[in-house]
């Protein structure tokens, strides 16, 4: 099985970091994977996206043009990529910031008010981790098992004090039901 994931949002929303967490989770599960950021003159407030491919087989092209899973962290990202998602795929919508509904009826849609949930936790910058949790809950490509091990790889020793709150944010998303 190969799952192509596209995470898109504003620069500063932690889109690339969310992709890293998923990548390490895949690595710890013994899967093949690739992580490819959009790079360039992007900055906080600009657009950023990140392609993650998780597979049982070696990954061919690392570029995701037809995602199986789209995490849309803002409206421009949903507008841009909604039509690209494979039929039967998943769209996770950050519903604090995106007010409209997904137009398509051939995809599974989950509305997650990640920014609000993160704010309620006192960690307004961790909406990305809430979405990671929801993705793990809804997508068969990755499991929740030994999540801590993967997170330890991504949260550096320097920021060890942020480990628990990141884990909590992921679990909040994982357990979120609309």
């Amino acid at each position: 099985m190969t799952t192509q994931i596209l995470i898109a949002g504003f620069g500063g929303q932690g889109v690339l970091f969310a992709g890293k967490v998923l990548s390490y989770k895949a690595l710890m599960e013994g899967k093949e994977l690739s992580w490819l950021p959009s790079y360039g003159p992007e900055m906080r407030g600009g657009t950023a996206n990140c392609s993650v491919i998780v597979s049982d087989d070696p990954v061919g092209s690392p570029i995701v043009s037809k995602p199986d899973v789209l995490i849309a962290m803002n409206l421009p990202s949903l507008d841009k990529y909604e039509d690209a998602v494979n039929p039967g795929g998943i769209i996770l919508v950050e519903s604090t910031l995106i007010e409209r509904k997904v137009k398509r009826s051939d995809v599974n849609v989950f509305y997650v008010p990640a920014t609000r949930l993160a704010n309620e936790m006192g960690a307004p910058t961790l909406a990305n981790m809430v979405m990671v949790g929801k993705l793990i809950a809804e997508c068969d490509a990755l499991t929740h098992d030994n999540l801590e091990d993967a997170l330890h790889k991504v949260v550096s020793a320097k920021h060890a004090d942020l480990f628990e709150i990141n884990l909590k944010a992921i679990n909040t998303g994982y357990n979120y039901k609309a």
Partner: peptide, 10 residues
Amino acid sequence: DGTLGQMMEP
């Protein structure tokens, strides 16, 4: 190329 430089893989 830029893709190979920027991408992460195991």
